[in-house]
Computed example of a mutant assay.
Amino acid sequence: MNKKVEILKDKNALIERSLSLVVTKIQQAIESRGKCTIALAGGNTPKPLYEALAKQSFPWDKIEVFWGDERYVSADHLDSNQLMARQAWLSKVDFPETNIHPMSTTAGEPDLDAQRHEAELQQFFRLAPGEFPHFDLILLGIGDDGHTASLFPQTDALTVTDRLVTVGNKQGEPRLTFTVPLLNHARCIVFIVSGENKRPALREIFAPQGDEMMYPARLIQPEGELWWLLDHSAGAEFDGNLT
């Protein structure tokens, strides 16, 4: 597996490096395949990255945006990952609405919305039954409990292998999330991690042996490239120990 770990001096450097890498991967995908399919992460860490992407000059009609997970709230809710990305990036540029593919949360039944988004992915990527899409780029983060996307420790979503999208569970609150096999079919995954509170989880995630059910980010082993970009607060103890 093509795994790379970089520790940046602070959060500003983390965002700068993330921007450089994301821009490169988008450009490479467009040059190679005529478009780039990217799945975004939620949370606070990537927001300045999205704000920086809004200042770039891309052929926006050649980028197709998805999300790796979504809280089960309305699209205009302050906790919505979609809303954050629209406010920070997508609404700031001339981005075609038809190129934006949010996870629907309107059915009132999370599993039904998961099935609907899975059907959308199958149609968009022209998948045969049992096939998984190859996203050009998926952005991820981790929680201090070792979760990623909405794949939380000791939850049923971790064991789903025959779906593209499933229902995650955070302390009884449903969320929609890409499944582990979908994530692992990506051409490139980039983890963007900030904060000293992430160090205990990173120790477990990077350990040679560990419990994937307790630290779900260990399950992310993509076919393509795997990048871990950490600021110094998160990754100081790993500096020089990982390549």
Rank of each mutant, 00 (worst) to 15 (best):
K198S: 02
A41T: 13
E6W: 13
N12E: 15
S80H: 13
R17Y: 10
T179M: 10
A29K: 01
K35M: 09
G68N: 06
Q171W: 07
E223S: 10
H77N: 15
E225G: 05
D231I: 02
L139N: 02
S57F: 10
P129F: 04
I26A: 10
L127P: 00
Q221N: 13
A207S: 14
S194G: 04
V93N: 06
E225F: 10
L226R: 08
F152K: 05
P96G: 09
N2H: 14
G108F: 11
H101L: 03
A107R: 06
P102S: 02
T166A: 07
Q123C: 07
I7K: 02
H117C: 10
H185V: 11
L230F: 11
R199P: 00
T161A: 15
T24S: 14
L229I: 04
D69Y: 07
G235C: 06
E64S: 11
G172T: 06
N81W: 05
K170G: 03
E120C: 09
R163S: 12
D111Y: 14
L53W: 04
M103W: 03
Q154H: 15
K35F: 14
L78N: 08
P153R: 02
N12T: 15
L176G: 01
G141E: 08
A39V: 06
V5S: 05
I38D: 00
N99F: 06
I63F: 04
F124I: 09
W89M: 11
W227I: 12
L229G: 10
P181G: 11
I205A: 00
